[in-house]
Amino acid sequence: MTRVGIVGLGTMGRTHAEAYQQMPDVEITAVFDRNPVRTEPFASDFQTFGATTLGELLNRCEIVDICVPTYRHAEFAIPAVEAGKAVVCEKPLGRTMEQCEQILEAVSKHNALFMPAHVLRFFPEFKRAHELVQGGAVGNVAAVRTRRGGDFPRASSDWYADFSKSGGVALDLIIHDFDWIRWTFGPIERVYAKSLTFQNLEHLDYTLVTMRATSGAVIHVEGTWCDPGGFRVTFEICGDAGMLEYDSRQMVALRMAKRAEGAQGGGVEVPDNPALQDPYYLELRHFVDCYQQGIQPMISAQDGYEAARIALAAIESAQTGKVISLS
């Protein structure tokens, strides 16, 4: 049995716990949250030990899964790495480059098994697109567009709305795309961005980023927390031999529409793209497999660092109006 401890018991903590529950060779041996009120019900739901300190958790597991808000990743990931644990850490790696560097240093110093949880690489549509591009399906890539977002996310203590904690759409949301873009199209040379993040609009955030890859490909990334139309992801990859196009709103395998109760009419539609295994399961299974086999995961701490660097460059560009060079 591989023993896993989860730190941070919000939405992501629960998503990860549900994935581990499906693995017969994995046991959640401890959970911890800075807010003790959350620990007891979570521990009870997953029939595990509710630790009152991080140390208590570290003593009971081999793998530590960090699901706290971004600005606290370093605070919990570094002690876990120093305690010799294998660590999977939610994205983004850190809120600042300093935090990311500290994590990178600790991982390197302790030669730790570490993976930033860039789950997009395990989403079947993004994985398939990556494979197709690598296989030359569209030839040399010229232009890429991605789009991600919906309405403003609501979470405990509204931490997404606090730029100093979340980093806004650029760091929290479209970092998914930044990592997938690096993975698929190679390193990024420079970044230019415009954003609503600094206009002090309550629960509205929107960012448009234009990047140039070292290959010469031009990439446009859109992130929105201002679209009441619902969550939507699209991508388009144009090359000299073809194009790949995906829109989560168009390509839906299953839709349920329910009539509203009462005489008012109307209703709500729930789209769904069911799969045998969800991307969070696949991501965490990959990490558990790597731990069990003693091999490095497909996403390195350095990858997490580079994705955060792009996101923070986009923020810097939006703040200064300058083109930010990453080369």
Binding site: A142, T210, V218
Partner: peptide, 10 residues
């Protein structure tokens, strides 16, 4: 600000 390339038709 603009970014361009000629990677579609070279």
């Amino acid at each position: 600000y603009a970014e361009t390339n000629n990677r579609m038709f070279h």
